Simulated assay, not measured.
Amino acid sequence: MAEASEPPLRILIVDDEAPARSRLRDLLGDISGEQPNLVAGMAANGVEALRLLETEAADVVLADIRMPAMDGIELARRLGALPVPPAVVFVTAYDQYAIQAFELEAADYLLKPVRAERLAATLARARGRLAARVPVPAPPQERRHLSIGERGRILLLPVADVIYLKAEQKYVTARTAERDYLLDESLVQLEQEFPRRFVRIHRNCLVAVAAVQGVERGGDAEGQWEILLAGLPERLPVSRRAWPAVKQVLGL
Protein backbone atom coordinates (compact mmCIF):
# COMPACT_ATOMS: atom_id res chain seq x y z
CA MET A 1 0.00 0.00 0.00
CA ALA A 2 1.26 3.50 -0.84
CA GLU A 3 2.27 5.78 2.00
CA ALA A 4 -0.13 8.66 2.64
CA SER A 5 2.69 11.15 2.04
CA GLU A 6 3.41 9.84 -1.45
CA PRO A 7 2.39 12.19 -4.28
CA PRO A 8 -0.36 10.98 -6.61
CA LEU A 9 0.68 9.26 -9.82
CA ARG A 10 -0.41 11.24 -12.87
CA ILE A 11 -2.21 8.79 -15.18
CA LEU A 12 -2.95 9.12 -18.90
CA ILE A 13 -5.67 6.76 -20.18
CA VAL A 14 -5.49 5.81 -23.87
CA ASP A 15 -8.27 3.68 -25.39
CA ASP A 16 -10.38 4.09 -28.52
CA GLU A 17 -13.57 3.02 -26.70
CA ALA A 18 -15.18 5.63 -24.44
CA PRO A 19 -16.74 3.05 -22.05
CA ALA A 20 -13.30 1.48 -21.52
CA ARG A 21 -11.79 4.87 -20.72
CA SER A 22 -14.59 5.60 -18.26
CA ARG A 23 -14.19 2.21 -16.56
CA LEU A 24 -10.46 2.74 -16.04
CA ARG A 25 -11.12 6.23 -14.68
CA ASP A 26 -13.66 4.82 -12.23
CA LEU A 27 -11.29 2.02 -11.16
CA LEU A 28 -8.54 4.57 -10.54
CA GLY A 29 -10.95 6.50 -8.34
CA ASP A 30 -11.82 3.32 -6.43
CA ILE A 31 -8.16 2.60 -5.60
CA SER A 32 -7.04 6.19 -4.99
CA GLY A 33 -6.94 5.60 -1.23
CA GLU A 34 -4.54 2.71 -1.66
CA GLN A 35 -2.62 4.12 -4.62
CA PRO A 36 -2.94 7.93 -4.80
CA ASN A 37 -3.48 8.98 -8.41
CA LEU A 38 -5.08 11.59 -10.61
CA VAL A 39 -6.16 11.31 -14.23
CA ALA A 40 -3.99 13.72 -16.23
CA GLY A 41 -6.03 13.13 -19.40
CA MET A 42 -7.78 10.65 -21.68
CA ALA A 43 -7.10 9.98 -25.36
CA ALA A 44 -8.66 7.79 -28.06
CA ASN A 45 -5.38 6.79 -29.77
CA GLY A 46 -1.62 7.25 -29.70
CA VAL A 47 -1.67 10.45 -31.75
CA GLU A 48 -4.03 12.13 -29.30
CA ALA A 49 -1.94 10.83 -26.39
CA LEU A 50 1.28 12.35 -27.72
CA ARG A 51 -0.52 15.64 -28.34
CA LEU A 52 -1.80 15.67 -24.74
CA LEU A 53 1.67 14.96 -23.39
CA GLU A 54 2.94 18.15 -25.00
CA THR A 55 1.07 20.09 -22.30
CA GLU A 56 0.38 17.49 -19.59
CA ALA A 57 3.03 15.46 -17.74
CA ALA A 58 2.20 11.82 -16.96
CA ASP A 59 3.90 9.26 -14.73
CA VAL A 60 1.95 6.26 -16.04
CA VAL A 61 0.21 5.63 -19.38
CA LEU A 62 -2.56 3.00 -19.42
CA ALA A 63 -2.80 2.10 -23.12
CA ASP A 64 -4.94 -0.22 -25.18
CA ILE A 65 -3.12 -1.93 -28.05
CA ARG A 66 -5.55 -2.10 -30.99
CA MET A 67 -6.40 1.53 -31.78
CA PRO A 68 -6.78 3.54 -35.01
CA ALA A 69 -4.29 6.21 -36.16
CA MET A 70 -1.54 4.97 -33.80
CA ASP A 71 -1.75 1.73 -31.81
CA GLY A 72 -0.43 1.12 -28.31
CA ILE A 73 2.76 -0.63 -29.44
CA GLU A 74 3.85 2.34 -31.58
CA LEU A 75 2.86 4.74 -28.81
CA ALA A 76 5.08 2.82 -26.36
CA ARG A 77 8.00 3.07 -28.81
CA ARG A 78 7.52 6.84 -29.07
CA LEU A 79 7.25 7.24 -25.29
CA GLY A 80 10.38 5.17 -24.75
CA ALA A 81 12.35 7.71 -26.78
CA LEU A 82 11.43 10.60 -24.46
CA PRO A 83 14.13 11.97 -22.12
CA VAL A 84 12.00 11.00 -19.09
CA PRO A 85 9.55 8.35 -20.33
CA PRO A 86 6.44 7.48 -18.34
CA ALA A 87 5.79 3.89 -17.26
CA VAL A 88 3.61 2.15 -19.85
CA VAL A 89 0.94 -0.36 -18.83
CA PHE A 90 -0.93 -2.15 -21.62
CA VAL A 91 -4.63 -2.75 -20.96
CA THR A 92 -6.06 -4.96 -23.69
CA ALA A 93 -8.50 -7.74 -24.51
CA TYR A 94 -5.81 -9.66 -26.45
CA ASP A 95 -3.00 -11.75 -25.00
CA GLN A 96 -0.91 -12.25 -28.18
CA TYR A 97 1.00 -8.98 -27.81
CA ALA A 98 2.57 -9.76 -24.42
CA ILE A 99 6.02 -10.57 -25.83
CA GLN A 100 6.14 -7.31 -27.81
CA ALA A 101 4.98 -5.43 -24.74
CA PHE A 102 7.75 -6.69 -22.49
CA GLU A 103 10.35 -6.19 -25.22
CA LEU A 104 9.32 -2.54 -24.94
CA GLU A 105 9.87 -2.76 -21.15
CA ALA A 106 6.21 -2.26 -20.31
CA ALA A 107 5.54 -2.00 -16.58
CA ASP A 108 2.67 -4.51 -16.87
CA TYR A 109 0.22 -6.18 -19.26
CA LEU A 110 -3.38 -6.29 -18.05
CA LEU A 111 -6.17 -8.22 -19.71
CA LYS A 112 -9.68 -6.75 -19.77
CA PRO A 113 -11.81 -6.70 -17.70
CA VAL A 114 -9.32 -5.31 -15.20
CA ARG A 115 -9.92 -5.90 -11.50
CA ALA A 116 -9.33 -3.09 -9.01
CA GLU A 117 -6.84 -5.06 -6.89
CA ARG A 118 -4.84 -6.01 -10.00
CA LEU A 119 -4.68 -2.38 -11.12
CA ALA A 120 -3.60 -1.27 -7.62
CA ALA A 121 -0.76 -3.82 -7.65
CA THR A 122 0.29 -2.58 -11.10
CA LEU A 123 0.42 1.04 -9.94
CA ALA A 124 2.48 0.01 -6.91
CA ARG A 125 4.94 -1.72 -9.25
CA ALA A 126 5.05 1.31 -11.56
CA ARG A 127 5.63 3.61 -8.57
CA GLY A 128 8.57 1.49 -7.50
CA ARG A 129 10.00 1.50 -10.99
CA LEU A 130 9.71 5.28 -11.24
CA ALA A 131 11.35 5.74 -7.82
CA ALA A 132 14.25 3.49 -8.81
CA ARG A 133 14.86 5.30 -12.07
CA VAL A 134 18.25 6.98 -12.22
CA PRO A 135 17.55 10.71 -12.43
CA VAL A 136 19.00 12.67 -15.32
CA PRO A 137 21.62 15.07 -13.89
CA ALA A 138 20.29 18.60 -13.81
CA PRO A 139 22.22 21.32 -15.59
CA PRO A 140 24.48 23.37 -13.30
CA GLN A 141 22.04 26.25 -13.50
CA GLU A 142 18.83 26.97 -15.37
CA ARG A 143 18.88 29.05 -18.53
CA ARG A 144 18.72 32.78 -18.16
CA HIS A 145 17.52 33.32 -21.74
CA LEU A 146 15.17 31.60 -24.18
CA SER A 147 16.16 31.41 -27.85
CA ILE A 148 13.64 32.93 -30.27
CA GLY A 149 13.91 32.33 -34.02
CA GLU A 150 12.47 35.37 -35.77
CA ARG A 151 12.87 36.59 -39.36
CA GLY A 152 16.19 34.85 -39.97
CA ARG A 153 17.75 35.86 -36.67
CA ILE A 154 18.04 34.47 -33.14
CA LEU A 155 16.81 36.65 -30.29
CA LEU A 156 17.69 36.02 -26.64
CA LEU A 157 14.66 36.62 -24.43
CA PRO A 158 15.47 36.98 -20.71
CA VAL A 159 13.46 34.41 -18.77
CA ALA A 160 12.95 37.03 -16.05
CA ASP A 161 10.95 39.14 -18.54
CA VAL A 162 8.41 36.39 -19.26
CA ILE A 163 5.05 36.99 -17.54
CA TYR A 164 3.36 33.82 -18.78
CA LEU A 165 3.76 30.94 -21.23
CA LYS A 166 0.78 29.58 -23.14
CA ALA A 167 0.58 26.54 -25.43
CA GLU A 168 -1.22 27.31 -28.68
CA GLN A 169 -1.35 24.63 -31.39
CA LYS A 170 2.25 23.62 -32.22
CA TYR A 171 3.96 26.51 -30.43
CA VAL A 172 4.30 28.10 -27.01
CA THR A 173 3.73 31.84 -26.73
CA ALA A 174 5.94 33.70 -24.25
CA ARG A 175 4.26 36.92 -23.11
CA THR A 176 6.24 39.86 -21.81
CA ALA A 177 5.03 43.35 -20.84
CA GLU A 178 5.88 44.54 -24.36
CA ARG A 179 4.89 41.74 -26.77
CA ASP A 180 4.47 38.04 -27.57
CA TYR A 181 7.23 35.68 -28.74
CA LEU A 182 6.85 32.22 -30.30
CA LEU A 183 8.93 29.39 -28.82
CA ASP A 184 9.62 26.03 -30.44
CA GLU A 185 9.56 24.27 -27.03
CA SER A 186 6.92 22.30 -25.16
CA LEU A 187 5.15 23.62 -22.08
CA VAL A 188 6.01 20.45 -20.14
CA GLN A 189 9.74 20.91 -20.83
CA LEU A 190 9.62 24.52 -19.67
CA GLU A 191 7.65 23.59 -16.54
CA GLN A 192 10.24 20.93 -15.65
CA GLU A 193 13.18 23.27 -16.28
CA PHE A 194 11.79 26.23 -14.30
CA PRO A 195 9.75 24.67 -11.46
CA ARG A 196 10.38 27.55 -9.04
CA ARG A 197 9.85 30.36 -11.52
CA PHE A 198 6.52 29.32 -13.08
CA VAL A 199 3.29 27.78 -11.75
CA ARG A 200 0.80 25.91 -13.92
CA ILE A 201 -2.63 27.54 -13.74
CA HIS A 202 -4.24 25.63 -16.60
CA ARG A 203 -3.33 22.67 -18.81
CA ASN A 204 -2.06 25.10 -21.45
CA CYS A 205 -0.65 27.95 -19.33
CA LEU A 206 2.25 28.66 -16.93
CA VAL A 207 2.50 31.98 -15.07
CA ALA A 208 5.59 33.56 -13.57
CA VAL A 209 5.08 33.54 -9.79
CA ALA A 210 6.82 36.91 -9.50
CA ALA A 211 4.32 38.47 -11.95
CA VAL A 212 1.21 37.49 -9.95
CA GLN A 213 -0.38 40.50 -8.25
CA GLY A 214 -3.28 38.57 -6.81
CA VAL A 215 -6.35 36.50 -7.63
CA GLU A 216 -9.98 37.43 -8.08
CA ARG A 217 -13.25 35.66 -8.75
CA GLY A 218 -14.26 35.88 -12.40
CA GLY A 219 -17.51 37.32 -13.59
CA ASP A 220 -18.93 34.04 -14.89
CA ALA A 221 -21.68 32.11 -13.12
CA GLU A 222 -19.25 29.50 -11.83
CA GLY A 223 -17.02 32.11 -10.18
CA GLN A 224 -13.75 30.71 -11.56
CA TRP A 225 -10.61 32.23 -10.03
CA GLU A 226 -8.50 34.49 -12.26
CA ILE A 227 -4.87 35.58 -11.95
CA LEU A 228 -4.13 39.32 -11.79
CA LEU A 229 -0.85 40.15 -13.53
CA ALA A 230 1.71 42.90 -12.96
CA GLY A 231 2.20 44.94 -16.11
CA LEU A 232 -0.73 43.45 -18.06
CA PRO A 233 -4.46 44.30 -17.92
CA GLU A 234 -5.58 40.82 -18.96
CA ARG A 235 -6.61 38.16 -16.46
CA LEU A 236 -5.88 34.47 -16.79
CA PRO A 237 -8.35 31.79 -15.63
CA VAL A 238 -7.22 29.12 -13.17
CA SER A 239 -8.62 25.64 -13.79
CA ARG A 240 -10.30 23.82 -10.92
CA ARG A 241 -7.70 21.06 -11.11
CA ALA A 242 -4.80 23.52 -10.88
CA TRP A 243 -6.32 25.72 -8.13
CA PRO A 244 -5.08 23.72 -5.09
CA ALA A 245 -1.47 23.80 -6.34
CA VAL A 246 -1.74 27.49 -7.29
CA LYS A 247 -3.03 28.34 -3.78
CA GLN A 248 -0.12 26.49 -2.23
CA VAL A 249 2.53 28.15 -4.40
CA LEU A 250 1.08 31.63 -3.84
CA GLY A 251 0.59 31.04 -0.11
CA LEU A 252 -3.12 31.80 -0.19
Rank of each mutant, 00 (worst) to 15 (best):
I73H: 02
L165K: 06
Y164Q: 00
L123W: 05
D108Q: 13
P139G: 05
L53E: 04
E234V: 07
K170C: 01
T92F: 08
L229P: 04
I163K: 07
K166R: 14
P36T: 14
K166M: 05
N37W: 03
L236K: 00
N37P: 04
G223C: 07
A126Y: 05
E6S: 15
V60F: 04
A49T: 04
L62K: 00
A2C: 12
E54P: 00
R151M: 09
L182P: 00
K166A: 08
L123F: 12
V209Q: 02
E185C: 04
V91L: 06
L250I: 00
A49M: 06
I201R: 00
V60R: 02
G46V: 06
R241E: 11
T92L: 09
R25F: 00
A4E: 15
P7A: 14
A101I: 13
I13A: 08
N45D: 15
K112Y: 09
L38D: 03
E6G: 12
G218K: 05
D26M: 08
A116W: 02
R175S: 05
R175N: 01
Q100D: 15
V249I: 12
A245V: 07
A211P: 02
R77S: 05
M42R: 01
V134D: 15
L110Q: 10
A230H: 13
A63P: 01
P137S: 04
E56G: 08
L24P: 07
P113Y: 11
R127H: 15
E103S: 13
P244F: 01
D30T: 13
A124T: 13
A49F: 03
A132Y: 03
A230Y: 10
V136Y: 06
A230G: 05
D15Y: 00
H202W: 00
